[in-house]
Design a protein around this nucleic acid. Structure first.
Lengths: 148, 148
DNA sequence: GATACTGGTTTTATATTGCAACCACATTTG
DNA sequence: CAAATGTGGTTGCAATATAAAACCAGTATC
């Protein structure tokens, strides 16, 4: 974990979020969790990452309330990492990351996995930002205003 | 920059995205860019980060086609970093990061900056994921399917 | 023409990461 | 039930990335 003292107690929500999940692995772990991965060994094999840093990452993710460490659902004596509500709140972010990657890092015909809605099996819509009154908003249509 | 050879040419769009912007600083730089920051020195002062690191990050962001390096708009001999279309495509992601932070890292009455729509000055809506037919989708309503 | 600013690079110290070995405990196998 | 194997880590070490500070050439300012 990096120091970034300048970011401690940052007033910007983006900075606080990145402080929790802005490292190289955390969002990939969360992505796997959305795909149903729960066990330490599964994460480790799936991501091909060193066990010590997976261990460290899971520890901070649990500390941040993104995962809960619960007894394994299969009755064994082991434990499982499951997403909390806060962790599940990262879903749009993972989808956003995926859609941006699909749009800008893949050639037209290039194959990649897709996310579909379970009921119809159809691809999900692109995320879009809308105003209170429903207008579609791009970057130029928005301003950040300081805390009141 | 970390190696992560296991991720080279990953078939997962999430992984490719994180390979480009998944480090500690890149998304904060992009956030500042959406707030109108363009110059090296502005980024550096605003983020309080070491100049060599900023230099390296901006270089890779340019290499990834997220920023363009263009002559300064004020007629001086200096240059500016401006977001490309690909860079602007990160807007929903930054908003997602912000909304998640607002929801889970701030107390009820705690002050923080807000993003409002320029036309009405009203807060933007929360990002939401919808199916092709418009149904609102949560994490449980989606599945990732392998590339066909 | 002197001074200060901009946009970096270099150097050096420190922190983080990745790898491999190791270990305790749980589970499965024969 | 003993041996073998799987699970979920920790520890030590080498490689790498980061941070801080000093430095520097080209601009702009006075």
């Amino acid at each position: 974990m990096v120091k970034r003292t300048s970011m401690e107690g940052a007033e910007c929500p983006v900075a606080r979020s990145l402080d929790a999940i802005g490292d190289w692995w955390s969002l990939l772990i969360v992505r796997d969790a959305f795909d149903g991965i729960r066990r330490f060994g599964e994460f480790q094999r799936n991501l091909g990452m060193a066990k010590n840093i997976l261990s460290a990452r899971l520890r901070t993710l649990v500390a941040h309330g993104i995962f809960d460490l619960v007894p394994a659902s299969d009755g064994s004596a082991y434990q499982e990492y499951v997403l909390t509500e806060k962790g599940k709140g990262l879903f749009p972010l993972i989808i956003g990351l995926r859609q941006w990657g699909e749009a800008f890092f893949f050639e037209a015909g290039e194959a990649h996995s897709r996310v579909v809605d379970r009921e119809q099996g159809r691809p999900v819509r692109p995320l879009e930002l809308r105003a209170e009154d429903g207008r579609l908003l791009g970057p130029e249509d928005c301003v950040r205003v300081a805390a009141e």
